[in-house]
Design a protein around this nucleic acid. Structure first.
Length: 709
DNA sequence: CATAGCCGCCTTTTT
DNA sequence: GGCGGCTATG
């Protein structure tokens, strides 16, 4: 096998594929054939005598995992190799070593909305106001702590100021709630696994033997907990191969620590580092623009993007009147490209925030152009999906109060607030779970006979489902959907529930697929894994439709034709990044990732007006547009240049221009910047500007000769 | 106890 | 402009 593969690789790719033993870092720029290298590497390991069973490959998303599995199968190399995300792996480890990890194996995986529910409760339990201690904020803080492996106990010890102490209290309470419900949140999966491996040398040894070769893709986006897990897993053999690109690190906000990849050589001093700098994906002009842009990042190791393709056509920069015009023109150009032979599945539109998909969708529908929106977690967040899954969760994990509360009266079966409160009271007094209390409804004195009967019916229904737990997940979902009354309540529901039935059908189809493909299918495993799925995993790259997605979702993909819309100040870069240099650089990397997805045609645009929170607002062009080094500027101006149309805002001719905070301005020698403050003093007015170089200048308007944009 | 309607909140990105 | 939560009403 090796010879055949060998011929298809460049020198550095060969090094990355065939360096078998010891730590290896592959610094792979965009379009450098990284995916191919990883797949071939798995094949090469097996060729070298490693049992597939002993190979563990970690990907960033479930979709990447299933694609890698697919590719490896094509090479005849996959069977037995463990390929999954960190989170999926952790679920399996925790289940297997539940005792040592201090968890109960039947745990529910709590996703964001389950977490929010628990956090709200925790804040309330602590007697705090949700306004001052917003659950979202608290979750963010707790998540950051968990990602850094600081558990509630440890944090309590180090909290010294008022806020930390309060947070510590909330954290403990939140943990207690999770424990009572036997729930683990996403961060727990990592933290508990890291602790398990670090504190139980026997487990660590066993896992290290099981996986004698560890490959981690997208290493630049691993967080501290994941780093510690990796470190522990390979501690016995150091056979770690990490691949990634610091310039494509876009998950800092989620705890990703770019230092992991930057410090790889310190962590594994005998590491071999291979750089893949040739780009086989994009044309020269696209790469040149991306390279110019990313060069503006200061905290960065310089890296070359070596084009192997010809120059190609210019990157297209356009400005439109508003978001609707922008969307219309995007579709129009896609039509033109299609007439020239382009495929819709080779075409994608990227944007910064999910909300921007709406205008696009309308344009695609209007123009009868097939598209698919690749969304985050929308599908599994739908009410009907969560409802069905909640039934299953209660069956598998009766302690899961979040799930039980969701279904106890869904569909409506006459168990109201008062009744639930009384059952709750009873469960508290007797130290039993809510579900246990429901089972004992007969002995709860303060519940009416009618309510008692309804609870009994509910419990006996649930108990009747239980024998089916060991069967196929899909069958049980179908049965629960029907017998719980959810199905008929949806069927009788209003027209707006139309999609709901189809959604559940889709869920069942997905479960059928799970039953067929999973290594060791069980309802418990299904439920624990399903929480880790996102819609992006179901993106169908082979169907002849244009893909619409956020820039984050675009990671790891490639298309012939790419449109990036909404290059506006506050959107890209996003306003929440303004006051943090690091975050501004991440925004730049985000655009860099988007641009480098394009093989042939790259179109970047912005709109002068954009509807925001239902209101049409004037925008400011993104500073990033000026960093692309495309001198022709907006060659495809749809009408007169952007600075001229500001005329309606200006005072009568002859007076000085006025500026407002946040506005982008250009200075002859200082370059592009943003107005911090405008002090109106008539003809002596001054303007304070923060330039993109970082320096802040106070300038007299009448001398500075600042221009807008 | 269920439902409809209203108010006020937030809204970046996602495993 | 969408959703969760609350209230008033049936």
């Amino acid at each position: 096998m090796q010879d055949a593969l060998y011929e298809q690789l460049t020198t550095s790719q060969r090094e990355a594929v065939f360096h078998i033993e010891g730590p290896l870092l592959v610094l792979a720029g965009p379009g450098s054939g990284k995916t191919r290298v990883i797949t071939y590497r798995i094949a090469a390991l097996i060729d070298a005598g490693v049992r597939p069973h002993n190979i563990c490959a970690i990907t960033f998303t479930n979709k990447a995992a299933s694609e890698m599995r697919q590719r490896a199968i094509t090479l005849g190399a996959s069977a037995g190799a463990h390929i999954s995300t960190f989170h999926s792996l952790c679920v399996r480890i925790l289940r297997r070593y539940a005792l040592q990890a201090g968890v109960r194996a039947g745990f529910s995986v709590y996703d964001e909305s389950d977490q929010t529910r628990c956090m709200k409760q925790a804040v309330k339990d602590c007697g705090l106001d949700a306004a001052n201690f917003s659950p979202a904020r608290m979750l963010e803080a707790v998540s950051a702590l968990k990602n850094n492996l600081v558990d509630a106990e440890a944090f309590k010890g180090q909290a010294d100021d008022f806020f930390s102490k309060t947070l510590a209290q909330i954290y403990s309470r939140y943990e207690r709630l999770l424990k009572e419900r036997n729930g683990l949140d996403f961060d727990d999966l990592l933290m508990k696994t890291a602790f398990l491996l670090e504190r139980h040398s026997d487990v660590c040894l066993e896992m290290g033997n099981r996986f004698s070769f560890l490959l981690i893709d997208e290493y630049q986006d691993t967080n501290h907990a994941q780093y510690r897990i990796a470190k522990a897993l390979v501690s016995g053999h150091n056979n770690i191969c990490a691949t990634g690109d610091p310039d494509q690190s876009i998950y800092r906000w989620r705890g990703a620590d770019i230092r992991n990849i930057l410090a790889f050589e310190k962590d594994w001093p005998d590491a071999v580092v291979v750089k893949l700098e040739e780009n086989f994906r994009s044309t020269g002009k696209i790469l040149a623009a991306a390279d110019k842009l990313i060069a503006f990042n200061k905290s960065r190791k310089e890296k070359k993007l070596l084009a192997t393709k010809p120059e190609g056509v210019d990157v297209d920069l356009s400005v439109f009147e508003d978001g609707t015009a922008e969307a219309q023109e995007v579709v129009q150009r896609i039509k033109e490209l299609t007439e020239q032979g382009a495929m819709l599945r080779e075409t994608a539109v990227f944007y910064r925030v999910n909300a921007m998909s709406r205008v696009l969708e309308e344009a695609f529908i209007r123009n009868k152009t097939p598209y698919q929106v690749v969304r985050g977690v929308e599908f599994y967040n739908r009410k009907e999906i969560r409802d069905v899954l909640a039934y299953l969760k209660v069956l598998v994990n009766p302690s899961d109060e979040v799930a039980l509360m969701r279904i106890i009266n869904t569909p409506a079966r006459g168990i109201g607030k008062t009744t639930i409160e009384r059952i709750r009271g009873y469960s508290g007094e007797n130290g039993i779970t809510l579900y246990e209390a429901c089972k004992r409804a007969e002995s709860i004195s303060d519940i009416s006979a009618a309510a008692r009967a309804k609870i009994t019916v509910f419990v006996s229904m649930m108990e009747q489902f239980k024998p089916d737990i060991d069967g196929r997940a899909a069958d049980l979902i179908a049965r629960v959907f029907c017998e719980s009354g959810l199905q008929s309540s949806l069927e009788m529901g209003a027209v707006k529930e139309q999609g709901a039935l189809e959604n559940v059908e889709e869920l069942i189809n997905a479960a059928v697929q799970y039953d067929a493909e999973a290594e060791d299918p069980s309802l418990l495993d299904y439920l624990q894994q399903v929480a880790l799925f996102s819609d992006a995993d179901s993106y169908d790259a082979s169907s002849e439709r244009v893909a619409l997605m956020t820039l984050h979702a675009a990671k790891g993909l490639e298309f012939e034709n790419v449109f990036i819309i909404g290059l506006e100040d506050g959107l890209l870069p996003h306003e929440r990044s303004f006051d943090d240099q690091e975050e501004m650089e991440e925004e730049r990397r985000l655009l860099f990732v988007g641009m480098t997805r394009a093989k042939t045609h790259l179109n970047i645009s912005w709109a002068r007006y954009r509807t925001f929170r239902g209101q049409m607002l004037r925008t400011i062009r993104s500073q990033f547009l000026d960093e692309l080094g495309i001198d022709a500027g907006e060659a495809h101006e749809q009408d007169e240049p952007y600075c001229v149309d500001d005329a309606d805002d200006q005072q009568e001719a002859g007076s000085l221009p006025r500026f407002v905070a946040g506005q982008a301005v250009r200075h002859e020698s200082f370059g592009i910047g943003r107005v911090k403050e405008y002090v109106d003093m008539g003809e002596n007015s001054v303007v304070i500007v923060r330039f993109n170089t970082g320096q802040i200048k106070t300038l007299m308007v009448k001398y500075a000769n600042l221009s807008k944009g």
